[in-house]
């Protein structure tokens, strides 16, 4: 736990995968480990923020399509029907 505290990024900077992985570990910790109540409260608050972050990202998700040209990928404009 001390470890995750020192490396904790603000949730706004997390990708969906990062947020989800951290959420998973927060829930696991809360469910399985005995921590001081204050630490648990902090974990819980962090977990809530992570849930919100994941929810936002899912809501806002839009498929990004890029096209390879040589070695680099550029945004791909789909032709509309």
């Amino acid at each position: 736990m001390a470890k995750s505290k020192s490396t904790q990024k603000p949730v706004e900077e997390l990708t969906y995968e990062e947020a989800l992985a951290e959420l998973e570990s927060v829930v696991d910790t809360l469910e399985s480990e005995q921590n001081p109540l204050e630490d648990s409260m902090k974990l819980y608050e962090r977990g809530q923020a992570l849930v919100a972050r994941c929810g936002e990202l899912l809501e806002a998700a839009q498929l990004k399509v890029q096209k390879l040209a040589g070695e680099s990928a550029a945004p791909f404009e789909e032709e509309l029907e």
């Binding site: 969906y16 990202l57 899912l58 998700a61 839009q62 498929l63 990004k64 399509v65 890029q66 096209k67 390879l68 990928a73 791909f76 789909e78 032709e79 029907e81």
Partner: peptide, 27 residues
Amino acid sequence: SETGAALRDMLNTLRRRLPLARVILAP
């Protein structure tokens, strides 16, 4: 193929199922 219906079908399916993904097309 960049112009085929297959690409359109696949992108529509991916958009519907997993818009979180990034797609790289190699035409």
